[in-house]
Nucleic acid binder design. Structure first.
Lengths: 186, 186
DNA sequence: CAAAACATACCGTCTGGACGGTTTTCTGTC
DNA sequence: GACAGAAAACCGTCCAGACGGTATGTTTTG
């Protein structure tokens, strides 16, 4: 009889922990390392415990996806709320959420989204819907060619960061940030 | 005794076929679907046959990576050779190789690179070296902020294509292409 | 005391890969 | 050009471990 069995129960915390661990694992050791055994063990729960929260692996990955997009929604909304200028508002929020100084804890989690999206093709449809919704909501203010250019560039930066390819020193990053924000207003 | 055993042998063709199938599979059904069984079967070879060309799974993925980067090298060199203007030459080659009309057979294969890179963290080092080499070879002509911006935007477009997120209609794509090429010269 | 939140044990399948066999192709020799 | 090896290019079988998932318990909580 393990001690874990007797500890206080915090179902919501355990659930969150499982999702975090799953993300961390896929980021650091690749999506193939996200097994029920590995995740549950790293989260300090038994496999049975994991399967109580997520009845199968798909629902675990689904939960990860939902969790991330919800956080993303909040992060973007927060940034948009503080921006008085309507034109390019969404694009600027997009920039400041994704284009953060390297190694920032916050930025790390979005990388997991890309990994999940690429390794689980079935999530792509839902991602497309997410993108479409934001595009539709901000048509007019953020559909100029330059705004799109900016957002795509951010995606590229994001990908380079994820792949660990060399990007820029912090000075160049700061300059790039300025350039992006300027373009979002043009 | 199967018929396949008696057919003509084309080792190089079989090898290529195996790599192609592996790429196609990971693109369409996700990297998890790239198993030795699935690849060998789809390529019309036995698993033993596969393991003759690639002694283990790692070497198969490695072969895929090498194959793709070599093709990429050739594609970029070709484009650069036809470009008389030194400034931004590499960036323009980069654009024309990666930013192709949707659904173009040629462009599809590079997507596999991203998938491989994300699902196999051990390849990232080699990718970094690839990027570093090109960056070093073209320092001076292609290291301006705008050139980098362009290349990152292309990466972003590439990623969006890969994820199937909505991008642009062909008119907008053409306009974007123009914009990118202009920026590469600025 | 019922339901939620876990743990433990177990099972069928899949996967990577080792191994030995068979057929074709190559290589040198006459 | 013929012919014997030798090597390369496959095939088929088998296995140990990993993996996802089930079934059944035990403890905690409301």
């Amino acid at each position: 009889m393990s001690k874990a069995h007797h500890r206080k129960k915090h179902p919501e915390a355990v659930r969150q922990q499982l999702l975090e661990v799953a993300g961390k694992l896929s980021l650091e050791k690749g999506p193939a390392s996200v097994t029920l055994d590995a995740v549950s063990q790293a989260a300090g729960v038994s496999k049975g415990g994991l399967l109580h929260h997520f009845p199968n692996k798909l629902s675990l990955l689904d939960g990860l996806f939902v969790n991330l997009t919800e956080k993303l929604d909040r992060a973007i909304s927060d940034k948009m709320r503080d921006d008085p200028e309507p034109k390019g508002r969404f694009t600027r929020a997009y920039v400041s959420v994704f284009f953060q100084p390297e190694g920032m804890e916050d930025g790390e989690q979005w990388k997991v989204l890309t990994i999940a999206l690429i390794s689980e093709p079935h999530l792509r449809d839902r991602w497309r819907q997410w993108v479409e919704r934001y595009l539709a909501e901000n048509v007019g203010t953020d559909s100029s060619p330059d705004a799109m250019l900016v957002r795509y560039a951010v995606d590229g930066l994001w990908l380079a960061d994820l792949l660990g390819s060399p990007t820029m020193d912090s000075a160049a990053r700061a300059a790039m940030l300025e350039r992006l924000l300027t373009l979002s207003r043009s």
